[in-house]
Design a protein around this nucleic acid. Structure first.
Length: 187
DNA sequence: ATATCGATTATCT
DNA sequence: GATAATCGATATG
């Protein structure tokens, strides 16, 4: 359950002398071949190579010809799995998020567990209440309950389906500036 | 309030 | 050639 665990963490973007931080408020999980909605469902291809690679890497792809979507790989080498960042900070929706943080194809494959141009950080913040709904914007396997968001956050993206479940706050895993919880998973 | 549409390109059939 | 993990604008109830 990497996807809900990422809620409340920070997405840090460094470029030039500038640093932006955005707290993750909405995520979606995508699995491998069992998940018809996942890009990895059709097997390993040039595009999905990152999803099959080591965990904690950025999977960035273009959607509808004009937006970028940012994911992080979550399963060990050889297994496909990822989490899509749907909203962070004030940025609502995956396309706006990547535009706001200037994330593009150049960052595909970058290691998000170590400080660099783009990485994940944990400042100790712990979310209050996590809601679970069906995923948004997909046609296949649209019924699976793999969308997670922080209740009460304004930036959570629009089409909210009914809340199927609520999760208790995730226990603190590890302290420190850089978030290294990605390799610890189990779905 | 929900519904439909256009923009635009990498990827796969 | 069809499709797509989106967004913003426009139309209609």
């Amino acid at each position: 359950m990497v996807a809900p665990g990422l809620l409340g963490k920070l997405l840090v973007r460094r470029q030039g002398g500038r640093e932006q931080r955005a707290r993750i408020v909405e995520t979606e999980a995508y699995l491998g071949e069992d998940d018809a909605a996942a890009h990895a469902a059709a097997g390993r291809t040039a595009r999905t190579a990152v999803l099959f690679g080591p965990p904690g890497r950025a999977y960035v792809y273009r959607i509808y010809g004009l937006h970028w979507c940012l994911n992080v790989s979550t399963l060990p080498e050889g297994q496909a799995g990822g989490v899509l960042f749907r909203a962070a900070g004030e940025l609502s929706g995956p396309g706006r998020l990547t535009r706001g943080l200037a994330v593009g194809g150049a960052l595909n494959g970058c290691d998000l567990t170590r400080p660099g141009a783009l990485f994940l950080a944990d400042d100790g913040y712990r979310p209050a209440s996590i809601a679970v709904t069906a995923r948004v914007g997909i046609r296949k396997a649209a019924d699976l309950p793999y969308r997670y968001y922080l209740e009460g956050e304004a930036a959570v993206s629009r089409p909210r389906g009914p809340v199927l479940q609520r999760l208790s706050p995730i226990a603190p895993e590890r302290r420190g500036r850089v978030y290294s919880g990605i390799p610890c998973h189990g779905h």
